[in-house]
Amino acid sequence: MKHDRREFIKKAGWTFIGSGLYINLFSAGPALAGSRSSALKNLYAFIVNTETCIGCGKCAAACRAENSVPDGNYRTWIERYTIMHSGSVEVDSPHGGEKGFTPLSFNPADIRKSFFVPKLCNHCKKPNCVQVCPVGATYVSPEGFVLVDEKRCVGCSYCMQACPYSARFMNPVTHTADKCTWCYHRIRQGKTTACVQVCPVGARLFGRVDDTDGPVAQLLKAKRLQVLKPETGNEPMVLYVGLDKEVH
């Protein structure tokens, strides 16, 4: 114990000095040079195909059942974008799309295009939420999953403010931060995520990036993919097929 304490003081001291300077300033160098440097291995990626999503909401409902997500909060949700010829954009997501969508009252002749965009935690490579957690209650797991330790979380909501995607919420039962875990428990048990499993059209794919025969690695090769809000520098690991410029 005594040794641990000394170790801690030493570590904390050095990291206080070092982390601010080294990690934040100098690690930007290699990233700019193109090598995706990160101390962590991001072994997994999630691919969302907005071109095949039918907006049935099965994924959001399955997520709620799988993870006991309290009503009114969403670990995943589906947005419907309707873009008019006039250029105006209508977006809706009733109940997070969990109960499906009903037809809109617009004149079909006025609609330029319309599509669904499922959203979930992006499990970023450089997650802003983990950066701002003051107590080390949210972290990147060895497999690259961004998780919350509900036994350490103090419930300050700083991570919710920091997440550019609003993927986090305050769990009204545990009073701690809560979010999509990419069904970490299921992955560790050799299954796939609940939302991927129930999707009837395969609009959601999850798998290892390094598994060259896997569907994710195949799509990574075959398709041009986009991420949400790349300007935040968080390097999301949820990749989108057919993402429109109107989607934030």
Partner: peptide, 28 residues
């Protein structure tokens, strides 16, 4: 006021026990 706001005020000292200095808040 922070203690009134926290989801778990009883864990408030975690911020000093296990501070993570990449967080602006941890130094508080």
């Amino acid at each position: 006021p922070l203690l009134f706001h926290l989801g778990h005020p009883e864990r408030a000292l975690n911020i000093m026990f296990t501070p993570k200095f990449t967080s602006a808040m941890s130094g508080f």
